[in-house]
Design a protein around this nucleic acid. Structure first.
Length: 392
DNA sequence: AAAATGATCAACCGCCCTTAG
DNA sequence: TCTAAGGGCGGTTGATCATTT
């Protein structure tokens, strides 16, 4: 299959964008919206290939793009998500409102990797935390893999996403969140740094960066095998919640749980908290070793996670279930009964396996599905699910 | 003050997947 | 079923700015 080179047409501009080019692109997008990037050249006469236009839009011209330094919370989230997802920058970016994959990628390769390297050279792992020898499960080559100093501690497989939104005004939160996709394009935006706002483009946290008050963390606790999403949403209005990126359902399902296969009970139980260490959920991160299988799951195509459900169901049928919070029902594989009422969203019903039986345990597959949607969905999809605005 | 070096990040490259004809 | 085009993504480059010597 032949493939046309992306942007090799003669006569097309390359390099930094000019204000005029940006204006032409935005004028086009105001009218036509995103997509059909290759039409831009034809319609506007802009001498840029479609790919270049898309990149410019996605990384700089889009509304709500956050500029300025990464906060500690953001950095922490990047590290944790990278541990889970590897170099899947677009996925990681999807969990950081206003940040682009390119920006996160650059940040990783510069700041975080540098810190990791320095820490490794010093040979000083952070107190109370286990240094991880290998980073990403991603097959993609990365010399950062073995430099990862992402802390690891626990032993369980419990991943909790805790969002604490405190004392944010509605406007603050609005600024700090990913807004729903706009089709017609409200193209108000911070000017790109390339040619404007130079004075504020470096160093200081201009604009929305300081508004990142969602102290979103993905925390991990040990020993069970439950992935829990526990939101702490304080003093926020419903409107704020609506766009909260990582915030999980607040009231309807306050403790979402995701069952994951337990590979080796002894192994799992042997990785408890180090003696004498405080158990502080805010300080505990995911156990990378234990999470190996889980990371493989995340490294795979999310739509093929029915395999995982097979494992889970098998465990239940054999009474060898990962049981968390003590309450799990028996499993019937014949249709939907009692608690087996949840359905996967249609996008995960591709496989024959699921199409034959859309019923899953309400407190298993659904919750596991919630993790998938957390990692794979757009912000508005996820928050809609979490808020119960979509029937599941 | 100038050169060398380092850091940052916007943009490009090339591969892959999906979709339409 | 095949092919070409569109679009998305991760890796890499190179220009620019900051810092050090």
């Amino acid at each position: 299959m032949g493939r046309k080179p992306g942007c090799s047409k003669d006569g097309l501009n390359k390099g930094a964008w000019t204000p005029l080019e940006d204006k032409m692109l935005m004028d086009y997008l105001k009218i036509h919206g995103e997509g059909k990037w290759s039409n831009i050249v034809r319609v506007t006469g802009l001498k840029r290939c479609g790919k270049s236009c898309r990149l410019r839009w996605m990384n700089y011209l889009r509304p709500n793009i956050k500029r300025g330094n990464f906060s500690d919370d953001e950095e922490d989230l990047i590290i944790r998500l990278h541990k889970l997802l590897g170099n899947r920058w677009s996925l990681i970016a999807g969990r950081l409102p206003g940040r682009t994959d390119n920006e996160i990628k650059n940040y990783w390769h510069t700041t975080i990797a540098k810190k990791a390297q320095q820490r490794q050279l010093r040979g000083q792992p952070r107190v109370g935390r286990k240094q991880i020898a290998s980073g990403s499960q991603n097959g993609a080559a990365s010399d950062l893999k073995n430099q990862s100093t992402i802390e690891s501690q626990c032993t369980t497989g419990m991943v909790a996403a805790t969002t604490t939104l405190q004392e944010n005004t509605a406007q603050e939160h609005q600024d700090s969140i990913a807004m729903p996709k706009s089709t017609n394009g409200d193209l108000q935006h911070d000017m790109p740094k390339t040619y404007e706002n130079e004075s504020s483009s470096k160093g200081s946290q201009n604009g929305a960066a300081s508004n990142f008050k969602n102290q979103s963390t993905i925390e991990s606790q040990c020993t069970t095998g439950v992935v829990a999403a526990t939101p702490t949403l304080q003093e926020n209005t419903a409107q704020e919640h609506q766009y909260s990126t990582i915030a999980m359902a607040q009231s309807t399902s306050s403790n979402l749980q995701y069952y994951i296969p337990k590979t080796n009970e002894n192994e799992s139980s042997s990785k408890g908290l180090a003696s004498g260490e405080d158990y502080n959920s805010s300080n505990i991160m995911m156990d990378y070793d234990y999470m190996e299988d889980f990371s493989k799951i995340l490294d795979s195509d999310f739509t093929r996670l029915s395999d995982i459900h097979d494992i889970i169901s098998t465990d239940h049928r054999s009474n060898n279930t990962i049981e968390v919070n003590g309450d799990h029902p028996g499993v019937s594989t014949n249709g939907c009964k009692s608690r087996e009422t949840a359905e996967f969203p249609g996008k995960l019903l591709d496989s024959d396996h699921w199409s034959s039986n859309k019923c899953i345990l309400a407190d298993q597959g659904f919750d596991f599905m919630s993790l998938l949607s957390f990692l794979d969905s757009t912000d508005d999809e996820w928050t809609a699910d979490a808020l119960g605005t979509k029937v599941l």
